[in-house]
């Protein structure tokens, strides 16, 4: 464990909690892409199946349980409890265009052709594009609530910190995982446009609105 990975995990946890609190407190999931939340929930479920087979540390296991339970709770809030506030008309990204290629790629490019490894690889590839429905929805509505932009900022930051963690681990431990690194790069690059808007607008107290 190094400071960058820990900061990344904390940033990820903050993002997940911000979203959950936003929906719970405002009792509304306006502006939130339910499709992205379903993708994130499946990312965690497919990646953390080893929760019951391998014990790494209390930290590792508890974080996995928190991630899985919060993401499933968020999906529940969006599609069941606060379904009336779900903006389905703008959440129209065709996720099959993500899941099918990612599924195929995880069979073709992986470290080991075993069920657990293929599911892990699927999860890594899926996570790199899981935010697309959310970014697509914001581009369609032309704006995002400020709290939602903070959620996206910490979510995008987490994998960026993981990239630094992988540089650190390569330099100090000679460890690197090309699949995770390439997917992490793609994932972080997808946020660059948003990061620019976040820094130039939201941090200056303006609302995030895209030229519709």
């Amino acid at each position: 464990m190094n400071i960058f990975r820990l900061a990344g995990d904390v940033s990820h946890l903050v993002a997940i909690i911000i979203l959950l609190l936003k929906i719970w407190k405002t009792r509304s999931c306006a502006g939130i892409s339910g499709k992205s939340q379903i993708l994130f929930a499946s990312v965690f479920v497919t990646r953390y199946l080893d929760l019951f087979t391998i014990f790494i540390s209390l930290y590792n296991s508890s974080m996995k349980i928190i991630y899985i339970s919060c993401s499933i709770a968020t999906v529940y809030l969006v599609y069941f409890k606060f379904k009336a506030t779900y903006d389905g008309n703008h959440d129209t990204f065709r996720v099959e265009f993500l899941v099918v290629p990612v599924g195929g790629l995880s069979f073709l490019v992986n470290h080991d052709f075993s069920p657990m490894e293929i599911l892990w690889t699927f999860s890594i590839y899926l996570e790199s594009v899981a935010i697309l429905p959310q970014l697509f929805m914001i581009s369609k509505t032309g704006e995002a609530e400020t709290i939602t932009t903070h959620y996206l900022f910490f979510l995008g930051l987490y994998r960026g910190l993981y990239l630094i963690n992988w540089i650190w681990r390569y330099y100090f431990e000679g460890f690197f995982d090309l699949i995770a690194i390439v997917a992490g790069l793609v994932q972080t690059v997808l946020y660059c446009d948003f990061f620019y808007l976040y820094v130039t607008k939201v941090l200056k107290g303006k609302k995030l609105s895209l030229p519709a």
């Binding site: 990820h12 790494i56 590792n60 390569y170 000679g174 460890f175 690197f176 995770a180």
Partner: peptide, 10 residues
């Protein structure tokens, strides 16, 4: 270098 990933990352 260790190419294989240890399952220690989230």
């Amino acid at each position: 270098t260790i190419l294989k990933r240890e399952k220690d990352e989230l």
